[in-house]
């Protein structure tokens, strides 16, 4: 039996004993039923699995569940407010058609939240550069970039 870990996931304290070789993405999807983090590649490049760990975006497919012990994990399911109101980043993606099939979207949104937390007013170039670790096959990124800059504006206000 593996050691017990305690992780705060979307504000809830979770104690579990995942096998040592359990990825954080697998832990979230299969043990906690949080299927919003998607797995789109096996080389840590697509970014569909991005979650926030202690506020920083990470690829949950490239982190062991045990490495998350003691951290605060936010998945896409935990981004909206308690009353269900969308986070400004979610709202901006909706309003600017920043998603199509939705598969890369959770990672894209959480990556963008990390960006705006560091850089409240990113230029188009800064947004594009930041998104290096998030692949979208549907949108051509045009509306994603637009969404993130629109959200940043709301979040600055």
């Amino acid at each position: 039996m593996s050691e017990q870990i305690t992780v705060t996931v979307n504000g809830d304290t979770v104690s579990a004993r995942p096998a040592a070789n359990t990825l954080l993405s697998t832990f979230l999807r299969e043990e906690l039923g949080l299927t919003g983090a998607h797995v789109g590649c096996d080389t840590s490049q697509c970014g569909a699995c991005v979650v926030l760990v202690d506020g920083k975006s990470v690829k949950s497919c490239t982190m062991l569940a045990h490495q998350a012990a003691g951290t605060n994990v936010t998945t896409i399911e935990g981004l909206a407010g308690d009353g269900g109101e969308l986070h400004p980043m979610q709202e901006a993606f909706r309003d600017n058609h920043g998603l199509q099939c939705g598969f890369c979207t959770p990672g894209m949104v959480l990556s963008a939240v990390d960006l705006v937390s560091r850089n409240p007013d990113p230029s188009e170039g800064e947004v594009r550069s930041w998104l290096e670790g998030n692949i979208c096959r549907c949108t051509g990124y045009h509306n994603i970039v637009k969404s993130i800059r629109a959200a940043a504006k709301v979040m600055r206000a």
Partner: peptide
């Protein structure tokens, strides 16, 4: 019109095949 499907996708509530068990 803003897309109605976005509400679920933006909250991680899409139901893709691998989400089904």
């Amino acid at each position: 019109v803003r897309r109605r499907e976005d509400s679920r996708f933006l909250q991680g509530r899409g139901r893709y095949t691998d989400d089904i068990n």
